[in-house]
């Protein structure tokens, strides 16, 4: 099995978990800061998230009476990613560098794709629940691909990714 050092894997896992929790906290912080009157900080966070999400209020969960930093589907993906990270050590070895079979990733993307496409084409109206649940599924599965990739990347980086070629 292609595995790396446990310490490096733990570092990657801890950093990824910390960043994911920080990201989710910012999603919640945007409406909370608006409600508390910290408008400038809230506006910066909302504008930052506008780079990755449409933020339509009618498609967003509300927190403290204001829409969250991202829409319900994105919020579901990020929440699912944290859930996936929490489950990861119980399902796979943290040191594992190889991805799970690709059909799992494709299969996890199918429900959210159908939910999105059905809404766009007009076949059916997706709901908060369908957007969030399909997002959670995709996010949770994505964590099982991101973690081994970053573990492998750190291993390569430590092994001298940045070193110039000797024959150049």
């Amino acid at each position: 099995m292609n595995i790396t050092g446990r310490r490096n894997a733990m570092i990657v896992y801890a950093v990824l978990m910390a960043l994911s929790i920080l990201w989710a906290s910012l999603i919640l912080a945007a409406p909370w800061l608006t409600a508390e009157g910290h408008f400038l900080a809230s506006a910066v966070i909302y504008r930052g998230f506008s780079a990755v999400c449409h933020q339509a209020p009618e498609r967003s969960f509300y927190f403290h009476g204001r829409p969250m930093g991202v829409c319900s589907r994105c919020a579901g993906i990020y929440a699912g990613f944290i859930i996936g990270l929490l489950l990861y050590p119980f399902v796979r070895d943290l040191r594992e560098e190889r991805f799970p079979p690709r059909w799992i990733l494709i299969g996890a993307a199918v429900p959210t794709t159908i939910d999105f496409a059905g809404g766009v084409v007009g076949l059916f109206a997706n709901s908060f629940l369908s957007r969030a649940l399909t997002g959670v599924l995709f996010g949770a599965v994505a964590a099982f691909y991101v973690t081994p990739g970053l573990v492998s990347a750190l291993k390569d980086f430590i092994a001298g990714f940045a070193k110039p070629k000797a024959d150049c």
Binding site: E97, R98, F99, Y145, P148, G149, L150, V151, S152, A153, L154, K155, D156, F157, F161
Partner: peptide, 11 residues
């Protein structure tokens, strides 16, 4: 290609 190399070229 290893997963980490995909991450690096993506970065």
């Amino acid at each position: 290609i290893k997963s980490g190399e995909g991450a690096q070229v993506g970065a």
